[in-house]
Design a protein around this nucleic acid. Structure first.
Length: 481
RNA sequence: GGCCCCAUCGACUAACGGUUAGGUCACCACCCUUUCAAGGUGGCUGUACGGGUUCAAAUCCCGUUGGGGUCACCA
């Protein structure tokens, strides 16, 4: 039974890289009929942000990712919040010491900083030296016991072998090995008795029966420590899969400085969750097909960890925009109208769902995101209050007044359907010896006041005969025909 | 700097020893046309470099270069 987990820290918004990690875990679980767990890793009390855990869950749900076991849903391996599992970590920290795979250290943060600085100045790579620092080995059994008994501040550190290689297999990268002498004696239990990530993580993964650890590449360097911990406790190691990083255009790790990184930012900017998920799914993985558009179910059906790429992927917003417009064109109009109605009202427009749906139908191919609708379609809801100067300058001539009047009369006699309007206009243009384009632009100017918009005849049909004639007359007066 | 990871068009990627190195986004041109789009057609540009192995290398091996990640009582 496949069991995977997404384990964010409640320190803020959900990063798009986090979304992809959560998504791959979810897809992998669903693909194999397994279980996807959400675990909150809140062992660092100093970075805790109020309400962040709930926000994370809300955002994940918006994206269409549902967990089988989570803090709110519960499950057989709970609790799913690390701060509620502290006893377990202390117990296994002690167990590790018992097995001589970890030890007590009494150095203060200041002493460590000083040592670090000294070594750095000397140009030596920093690693905790358990033969010279203040710990149970240098202090001796009696002194250690005395310090422990009197409750002196202490930490528990991993006892990493001084020689040999640490090997593990990565489902994405293959076999990896690192010299044990390059691995630091990581702190497992802090002086406040709280566990660090490394301890809490492996204890939880073990007791939550996690079979595959799928996480970002930034965890690769600490995986040897995790492997060592599983071994020391006599636990079976899970399979590891480290995902390639999401990158800025300059190839550095995706960061706030160079654009939006919060999933919420994209949601608020009007991207569909289907598009974001689809886009992010294809960053670092691809089912070897030429297809670009996938529903969540299709992603589940084709997801394959062995096809995940090794190299980082640049997050290209232009392609996201394209993908979003694909969804914009495919979605039902009534659904789009319903979604954007609040924004329409907020911009001062009162309209009906049906009319709004028709408007969207006319403009959806001209925009990338739903939230562009209000600003793009003002003329569909009220007559223009001003006319684009440059456009008018280019297309309006006083001698157009008379022909336009005649055309308007001719159009009045039709059934005011787009096809008839077009046919009549073309016929009239031919008859009067004026180019169709001239009429088109003048009508657009008079009716919409703008240079860009939906198809002219479709727009006129939707606006209705009375409204169009009114706008034409108004313009004629304003322009001084 | 130490350690680890990585390397196909500008970007996302396909090709798991044999293809004229394919697709998508972006870009350019043309067509369509009623503005803007969309659509259609075509084009542009790539296996980082150097050595091997092999009849045959983008693909396997080694090295170089380049990029990234990581080196906390943060995750």
């Amino acid at each position: 039974m496949v069991r995977v987990r997404f384990a964010p820290s409640p320190t803020g918004y959900l990063h798009v890289g986090g979304l992809r990690t959560a998504l791959y875990n979810y897809l992998f679980a669903k693909r194999h009929g397994g279980v996807c767990i959400l675990r909150i890793e809140d062992t660092d009390r100093t970075r805790l942000v109020e309400g962040a855990a709930e926000a994370l869950l809300t955002t994940l749900r918006w994206a269409g990712i549902e967990f089988d076991e989570s803090p709110e849903k519960g499950g057989d391996c709970g609790p799913y919040v690390q701060s509620e599992r502290f006893d377990l970590y202390r117990q296994y920290a002690a167990e590790l010491v018992e097995r001589d795979a970890a030890y007590y250290a009494f150095d203060t943060a200041e002493e460590l900083d000083a040592m670090r600085k000294r070594m750095q100045d000397a140009g030596v790579a920093w690693r905790y030296d358990r033969t010279t620092m203040r710990n149970q080995y240098t202090l001796g059994e009696a002194e250690t016991k005395r310090l422990l008994d009197e409750g002196a501040p202490k930490t528990v550190r991993m006892k990493v072998p001084l020689s040999g290689e640490i090997r593990f297999n990565d489902l994405v990268r293959g076999p990896i090995e690192v010299p044990a002498r390059d691995v630091d004696d990581q702190i497992l239990l802090k002086s406040d008795d709280f566990p660090t990530y490394h301890l809490a993580n492996i204890v939880d993964d073990h007791f939550m029966k996690i079979t595959h650890v799928i996480r970002g590449e930034e965890w690769l360097p600490s995986t040897p420590k995790h492997a060592l911990l599983y071994d020391a406790l006599g636990w079976e190691r899970p399979q590891f899969a480290h995902l390639p990083l999401l990158l800025n255009p300059d190839k550095t790790k995706l960061s706030k400085r160079q654009g939006d990184v919060a999933v919420e930012d994209y949601r608020d900017k009007g991207y569909f969750h289907e598009a974001l998920v689809n886009f992010v799914a294809l960053l670092g993985w691809n089912p070897s097909s030429d297809r670009e558009i996938f529903t969540m179910q299709e992603l589940i059906d084709t997801f394959d960890l062995s096809k995940v790429n090794k190299a980082g992927a640049v997050f290209d917003v232009q392609k996201l925009d394209w993908m979003n417009s694909e969804y914009l064109r495919a979605k039902p109009l009534d659904e789009l109208a319903r979604d954007i109605m609040p924004a329409m009202q907020a911009s001062g427009v009162t309209t009906t769902p049906d009319y709004l749906a028709s408007v969207i139908g006319l403009v959806r191919e001209r925009i990338h995101k739903l939230n562009e609708v209000p600003a793009f379609t003002t003329y569909m809801f009220h007559a223009p209050t001003e006319y684009e100067a440059e456009f008018k300058e280019k297309h309006w001539l006083p001698e157009h007044a008379a022909p336009v009047r005649s055309l308007a009369e001719r159009l009045t006699a039709t059934d005011w359907k787009a096809a008839s309007l077009q046919e009549t206009t073309k016929a009239f243009a031919k008859e009067s010896g004026i180019k169709v384009g001239v009429f088109m632009n003048v009508l657009r100017l008079m009716i919409t006041g703008r240079s860009v918009g939906a198809g002219m005849f479709e727009t006129m049909e939707l606006l209705g005969k009375d409204e169009c004639l009114k706008r034409i007359n108004t313009a004629l007066q304003v322009f001084g025909g």
